[in-house]
Design a protein around this nucleic acid. Sequence first.
DNA 1: TAGATTGTTAATCGATTAACAATC
DNA 2: TAGATTGTTAATCGATTAACAATC
Lengths: 222, 222
Amino acid sequence: MKRIKISNNVIRRLPKYLRKLDDLSAAGVERISSSELGRQMGLTPSQIRQDFSCFGEFGQQGYGYNVAALHQEISKILGTDRNFTCVLVGVGHIGHSLISHFNFENFGFRLTAAFDVKSDMIGKSLRGTPVYDMNELRGKLEDLKPDVAVLCIPSFKANEVAPILVDGGVRGIWNFTNVELDIPTDTTVIENIYFSDSLLALGYYLSEHLDEVEARAAKQRK
Amino acid sequence: MKRIKISNNVIRRLPKYLRKLDDLSAAGVERISSSELGRQMGLTPSQIRQDFSCFGEFGQQGYGYNVAALHQEISKILGTDRNFTCVLVGVGHIGHSLISHFNFENFGFRLTAAFDVKSDMIGKSLRGTPVYDMNELRGKLEDLKPDVAVLCIPSFKANEVAPILVDGGVRGIWNFTNVELDIPTDTTVIENIYFSDSLLALGYYLSEHLDEVEARAAKQRK
DNA sequence: TAGATTGTTAATCGATTAACAATC
DNA sequence: TAGATTGTTAATCGATTAACAATC
C-alpha cells in the first residue's frame, strides 16, 4: 500500500465513522450521503468527503456511500484485517474488565494470553484466555510473538515491565497505566489511555458550562 | 471569571501539562522555562507560551515558570478547586476499578455514592463509598445532588439510565458505556471514553509502522 | 548591568469549508 | 434525461510557529 501522511485528526475520526456506520447498519440503512452523515455526526459534508478522499473513492456520484462497503473500507484502513495478536499484562480490575467484556476480535486483535503475579489468578482461563505467571512473560513473548501488549499493571511497575515487552518484540503498547512509558517511540507504537486527562477536561467544560448558566441567571436578575 | 472561547486543542493539552508538572515537582524541579518544558514534552516553546497566555501571565521574564505556581494555576483553570461531587452508576469491573484505584479527589471530584443492581454488592462500602440499590437512584440523586455521574453500566442500558441522571439534575456525565448518549448536550456536559476508538487508532499507527519497516526491508533487499 | 526568557504581535502553516465540474 | 451527490480544487479560517520588544 502506498502511504501518504494522513493527519492525526483524520485518523481519530475514522473510528467514529465506524461506530456510526455500525449504528446505521443495525438500523437497516443501506446507503447514506455525506450531507446526511454530516448532519448525524455534527460534521460538514465537505469534511467527510475530504476525509474519505485521503484513502480512495468510496462513494458514487448521485448516490452517496454504501454503508456496508464504506464500513469495510474504513475497517481495512484501520488495519482490522491484519490479524494482530495481543497479550494482556496485569489482570487487575481493568485488565479483568477488558478480558471479560472487551471484544478485541471486533477490532482486529486476538488476545492470546494474560499475565499476572497473583497466585489465585495464575493457571486460570478467563473467557478462553489463559493467565500465566508474570515470571513467564519473557519466555511466552518469545513463543507467542504478540504484536501488541495491553498494559494494565500498577503504575509504579509500568517502566519496569515496558522494556521487557519491547525486548520481547512487541510492536505496540496499549497503555492503561497512567504513566508515560520511557521507551523509544520510533520502534514501538504507544497508545495511552489517561482517565485523568479525560476527567480533567470534563471538569473544565463543566466549569465553563456552570459559569455560563450562572452568568445568564445574573443577567436575568438585573 | 471572564471567559473567552478557548480551543479544544488547548484544553486537551492542559491535563498533560499538569502531569508533567507533577513529575517535575516529584523530581524536585522548582522552575522551568518554556523551552525546556517544550523539549521534555515535544512541544514548541511558542505553543506553550501561547497556551498559557490564554489564561493569564504565569511566568516571569528571564526566569521562566515556577513549577508549583504554574501547577496551581492550571489546576484552577480545570476547575479542580470547585469541589465537584459525583456518583458512580454500575459497579462492574470498570466501575469497581475506578472506585478502588482512581483518585477522584486529586482531580477535584468527590465520589459520594455508587449504584448497582447486584444484591451482593448493595449495602457494601467500597473504599468508603456506599453502594446503593439501582432502584434508589432517583431518590438519592435528589438527596445528594451530584454534579457528575460516572456511567459504567452495560451499554444496552446506557440510554435507559442517562435520562434519569439528567432528570436528577446531573450536569456532567463521564461515559464509559461505549455508546453515544442520546440526551441534550446543551444542558449536560458529556465526556466519553471509547476504548475501541483508542485501540483502532493503535491499529492504524501500528499498520503504518509495520508497513514502513517492511518498505525499508524491501529497499535493503534490492 | 547583562543575559535570559517572557508575553504578544506578525507570519506561516495546515485543516476545514465552500464551490463546482464530473458523473452516476 | 434530470437530479443528486461525489471527488477535488480553491478560499477561508484557525492553530502553530517565529520574531522581538519588554522586563525580570
